[in-house]
């Protein structure tokens, strides 16, 4: 296989997770951390990076072990692999920034039960070689991070009047507190989905016309 032919395929594989199969907006997977930690841009970004790290590492390992993992116990094997990497991330974040660790709370450990990771391990990594599996996982990770940021940024701007901790408005700004409270998470994600569905419909109508 020539490199010229392989390059677009690799690129497609990577882009799939970002756009066509975006885990947050298209597949609506991994909702719990998506809604819980996105009260600010920084939290959203760190959660996205942590999840992506676990995703890429576990997919690589699952893919390496795919030929000698017994079929009957594969899910158990995946879960133990994922739990191992989550423990690594958990201790790493604790060492790097204790404030961030407190903000994200139990949701770092709850990455274990994030369905995106188990879904990727089962649907892609268990059937492909390590390199394509890692590229696919990286695309999904970036897509997930973009989804988290889309929520985190909107919620932080409206709910606190800041962006990544930098104040955006004058002192007269009244924060829209509901945005950083639980209902705000549901409303913002619902609005994003509404927007995407409206956009998809409009495109479809244009094509038919």
């Amino acid at each position: 296989m020539s490199t010229i032919a392989a390059a677009p395929r690799t690129w497609d594989e990577f882009m799939e997770g970002i756009w066509k199969q975006n885990p947050v907006f298209v597949m609506v997977l991994g909702m719990c951390p998506t809604l819980a930690v996105t009260v600010s841009g920084v939290n959203a970004l760190s959660m996205g990076v942590a999840t992506s790290f676990v995703l890429v590492c576990s997919c690589a390992l699952v893919s390496l072990m795919r030929s000698f993992t017994p079929k009957e116990v594969r899910i158990a094997v995946y879960i133990v692999i994922i739990a191992t990497f989550v423990t690594v991330v958990d201790y790493a974040i604790q060492a790097i920034s204790l404030a961030l660790y407190d903000a994200l709370g139990a949701f770092i450990q709850l990455i274990v039960v994030n369905c995106i990771i188990l879904g990727r391990a089962e649907a892609h990594a268990s059937k492909n070689a390590p390199v394509p599996a890692m590229i696919n996982a990286a695309g999904m990770g970036v897509g997930f991070t973009i989804g988290l940021l889309a929520l985190g940024v909107v919620r932080e701007i409206f709910g606190a009047g800041t962006l990544f901790g930098v104040s955006l408005f004058s002192a007269n700004f009244q924060p829209w507190v509901i945005m950083v409270l639980p209902p705000g998470g549901f409303f913002v994600l619902g609005s994003w989905l509404l927007l995407f569905s409206w956009w998809a419909r409009r495109k479809e109508a244009q094509q038919n016309a």
Partner: peptide, 22 residues
């Protein structure tokens, strides 16, 4: 409305329920 059907509607509903539980 057709646009709002599916997950978007469920999320809005959940938001309202969550508001009530506050």
């Amino acid at each position: 409305p057709e646009v709002a059907q599916g997950t978007a509607l469920s999320l809005m509903l959940a938001g309202i329920l969550s508001l009530a539980f506050m």
